[in-house]
């Protein structure tokens, strides 16, 4: 158990940074299972609009959430730069379709600042904190909120 805790702590110190529209978002790496470019997305008609579709991830059916839609941005056609950030949430694998995965950087929890209180718009409500890169601000996402069904 002890060792397991350490690894988790270590992992929490890394953040996967990706871009959705103009916004830089980050999630702690322990949420992330893999990042892929599987764009063989099967459209699921009559699904919630933020669901881009489903993919076959080694035999598992994974729901792909279009982050642009989630942030109320205009969805774009699939491109080579796009990535699926597959996260594990409540025992289910869910893919976040993002415009571009920027980097994976080490970041200690102290460096993550609370997000400004006024951010409560379509995007802002999913932010749990802010991390300052040299040039950009990275919004740290609240996975629970982001992946809840009604949000």
């Amino acid at each position: 158990m002890g060792t397991a805790n350490n690894t988790i702590a270590d992992a929490s110190n890394e953040i996967v940074i990706f871009q959705v529209g103009e916004t830089y978002c980050g999630i702690t790496i322990d949420n992330v299972q893999e990042i892929n470019k599987n764009m063989e997305i099967t459209t699921v008609y009559s699904a919630p609009d933020y669901v881009r579709g489903v993919i076959n991830l080694r035999g598992q059916i994974v729901t792909i959430i279009d982050m642009r839609k989630k942030f109320h941005l205009q969805p774009t056609a699939l491109s080579k730069k796009m990535n699926n950030v597959v996260v594990n949430s409540k025992g289910e694998q869910i893919g976040l379709l993002v415009d571009n995965v920027e980097d994976i950087i080490p970041a200690s929890p102290e460096e993550i600042l609370p997000s400004p209180p006024h951010m409560n718009d379509a995007m802002g409500k999913y932010f749990t904190g802010v991390y300052k890169l040299e040039e950009e601000l990275v919004a740290i996402l609240d996975m629970e909120k982001l992946l809840s069904k009604d949000a």
Binding site: T42, V44, S46, A47, P48, Y50, V51, V54, G59, Q60, I61, V62, T63, I65, K90, E92, Q93, I94, L147, K149
Partner: peptide
């Protein structure tokens, strides 16, 4: 038959994937 994720559980037209 594979199950669908929770975001699609309300789509009654599908039995799975």
């Amino acid at each position: 038959v594979k199950p669908l994720g929770r975001h699609l559980s309300d789509c009654r037209s599908y039995a799975g994937a």
